[in-house]
Amino acid sequence: MPELVGNTLAGLLTLAIFSFLYKDNVVYKFAEHLFVGLAAGYYVAFQYRTVFQPNLWDRLVAGDIVSFIPLALAILLFTRMLPSGQWLSRWPMGAMIGAYAGLQLIGFLQGDLIAQVQANILSVNTGSWVTNVNNFLLIVGVLTTLVYFFFSTEHKGAVGALSKAGIYFLMISFGASYGFTVMARMSLLIGRLEFLFGDWLHLL
């Protein structure tokens, strides 16, 4: 019985969201607002139970003095609301931005920049003509796309031709991304239809 009620509620709300495809209406707006409100409430409660309580509150109650440092930094974040003490919020913001910038910088250099440059140093004489063509296209694609984003020289003559080739590679890339996006949205539609006609109405 609880499953039937839950599925019926979910089914009706799904239809309410789908009704936007016909035109904007009050039923759609109700479902939208209900979702936003529920999600916000759920995440506040969830963050309190899984982040604030175990990582800070329980430790403070247990007498962990070190935990007063993050508590003080967290309180300082709220000084943005004080007209005269806004500058105090820069300290915790600085700590967060500094830590994340350090992590991201190293991760990007190690994981993306160096590894991807290495991965594009390819041979065009591998013994397999298919691989040779693939590698050649990859090298040409990377170089011409880089030329397109090089703005210190006017895109005329040879640079212009390479830049134009770069645009074609970018277009192919955007086309592939669009195709994958269509596939993702279609998958979501299939998931909802399977729920409506399978889990809810038991017609599948």
């Binding site: 590894a115 991807q116 290495q118 991965a119 994958f180 998958s187």
Partner: peptide
């Protein structure tokens, strides 16, 4: 599927 094109270079490398 939306994020797949971004990760294909990781597979290739």
């Amino acid at each position: 599927a939306v994020s797949a094109p971004e990760y294909f270079p990781y597979f290739q490398s």
